[in-house]
Nucleic acid binder design. Structure first.
Lengths: 150, 150
DNA sequence: TGTAACTGTTATGTAGCTAAACAATCTGAT
DNA sequence: ATCAGATTGTTTAGCTACATAACAGTTACA
């Protein structure tokens, strides 16, 4: 009862989940800002990054890696494909799946975007030194590992 | 090039923002799980917590405290009011604003929910000891303070 | 050979916001 | 005392980012 009015987050303060969300919202908004209208959304960028990093990955594999449903990937892949950033290649031996391959444009675009995203991250986490960034990364990873594994 | 296929998050791994989102999604999903169908969503719970913690807060003040637009609060407050958890009280001296007051039911409901949320947090952050939780809280707060102040 | 599992896809729905406009109300400078 | 500008709650419309359920085609395997 010492300072009843100063902090509006009196009861919420103790909840890590609340602060996790607020931090996420802040960072996500900055991502959108720095990308501008021509950029990709976080989810599309993540998918492109995954395809570039693991060429030939399947849509289902990609969905699992990103922790979303398969159905949610379709429109996302459509978007990347119609922008000529990735291709759906048939896989000999399994006519169900389609291997996702980045195009030359896709890789070039990704490299250009990475520079933007690095600038975004530098700005968002400017208040943290390198040790703190490592710590945050480690703790976030622990949170994900400790909960359900999706 | 040492291990090309083992980690699907080859390129994404370096981005703190990505891991922040994944951790948030994990925690948020657990919140929904533990609340069940009868529970409140995170946003409504947060609003209720804020009203309980700072009784008489205005809708605009609440929106600012939660970092959302005023327009987004209306339906949320409607929901809490129609569930008889909070009231909109007129404020003498300013007929524009409405002071938000928790009802008795609202406070009781909040207290009950807090127990659930504490259990949820205990489960989500079970992999972290108390020091790590404090560190995570401090770093998340720094992230929010370092970016734009919403 | 038949059944179960998996793939990509579609359709539909929902949560959780934002942006823009509005009337009512308040503030403050002149 | 008045009038421009700001603020409040609200409505409407729209958007993003998902999830769920069903489906036909394909594969694996007992």
């Amino acid at each position: 009862m010492s300072e009843p009015e100063t902090d509006p987050e009196i009861l919420l303060r103790d909840f890590l989940g609340y602060h996790l969300k607020r931090a996420y919202v802040t960072v996500h908004a900055d991502f959108r800002d720095i990308m501008g209208d021509a950029g990709l959304s976080t989810r599309v960028f993540s998918a492109l990054a995954m395809v570039v990093g693991q060429q030939g990955i399947t849509q289902s594999e990609l969905a699992r890696a990103l922790g979303v449903e398969r159905s949610g990937m379709v429109a996302l892949i459509d978007e990347l494909e119609s922008a000529d950033l990735i291709r759906r290649d048939p896989v000999p031996g399994d006519r169900r799946v389609q291997a996702l391959q980045p195009t030359g444009r896709g890789i070039a675009r990704f490299d250009a975007l990475v520079a933007l995203v690095r600038a975004h991250e530098a700005r968002c986490f400017a208040g943290l030194d390198d040790t703190e960034k490592d710590t945050l990364l480690r703790l976030l990873h622990k949170v994900r590992a400790g909960g359900n594994s999706t």
